[in-house]
Simulated assay, not measured.
Amino acid sequence: MTGVFGDVADLYDDVRPDYPAALADLIRDYHGGTPDTITEIGAGTGKGTAILLRLGAPVTCVEPDPRMTARLTATFPQVHAVTSTFEQWQPPAGGVPLLACALAWHWLDPTTRNPRAHDALTPGGTLAVFGHRYGYADPRQAHAVAAALRAIDPTAQERPTGWFQQDITDSALFTDIHADTIDRDLPLDTESYLRLLRTFGPYRQRSAEQQAQASTALRRLVDDFGGTVVLRLHTTLVLARRPRTDRP
């Protein structure tokens, strides 16, 4: 994930939608109160951090891109920021009571993210993974956008709904796995939609030619839909617990 978003850190922070405030209550209730400390993996510019700070505990943010960290700490100077990948970060002795990851789980090494998260937690500690899935309120818009993007890059694939809950479950390292989803609609005009598009990882990882083609095609589509597209945000929170006694 290092370098993918850093050169658009300000744009990312400006256009990425915030998380529902209700997530903080769901995390607190699951954890059983306010944790002593919180560590966030892949904190970015702090979209998830805003939710975690609502819990009222000190927050450490682990983020590999210093440009993202700079925007994060400008907004939330009270956090302790660590510029590091999750794979290089060393948790404190004894672990952390709450480990969170907002829309960054897919950027972590798939072979180690669950074992590392497990080992970073105190026994009985909480793992909270959350993020948005960007759908469309109008099925016609969803079909048209998908067709346009497939025409530009037929190899592009979307992760299945609920994939990170399944990923955590399949690791067999956690217990008491629970998921909540909050849906809401976000209307965007053409320019706002295209600005948001420029912050998506699949877009940023394409060639300059493919990026230009996507922008042109989607501008035409949104204009044809009257200059507005309505995103349906599916915000999912997956909560899991490190067992208090791990199996030998």
Results as ranks from 00 to 15, higher is better:
T2R: 15
V4R: 02
D7W: 06
V8L: 04
L11V: 02
D14Q: 10
R16H: 12
A22Y: 00
A22I: 01
A22N: 03
D29P: 01
I38Y: 05
E40K: 01
K47A: 13
T60I: 02
T60E: 01
C61H: 08
E63S: 07
P64C: 14
A70T: 14
T85Y: 13
W89T: 01
Q90P: 11
P91M: 04
A93I: 07
P97C: 04
L99Q: 09
A100M: 05
C101A: 09
A104G: 15
L108Q: 12
R116N: 08
A117E: 08
H118V: 06
D119C: 05
T122L: 07
P123S: 04
G124T: 11
H132P: 13
G135F: 11
A148T: 05
A148Y: 03
R150P: 06
T155M: 14
E158T: 12
F164Q: 09
F164P: 06
Q165A: 14
Q166R: 13
Q166P: 12
D170W: 08
D176I: 00
L188H: 13
Y193R: 04
L196G: 00
L197D: 02
T199I: 12
Q205W: 04
Q210M: 03
A214C: 13
S215Q: 14
S215W: 07
R220S: 15
R220C: 11
L221G: 08
F225S: 12
F225T: 01
V229L: 12
A240E: 09
R241P: 05
R241I: 04
R244V: 15
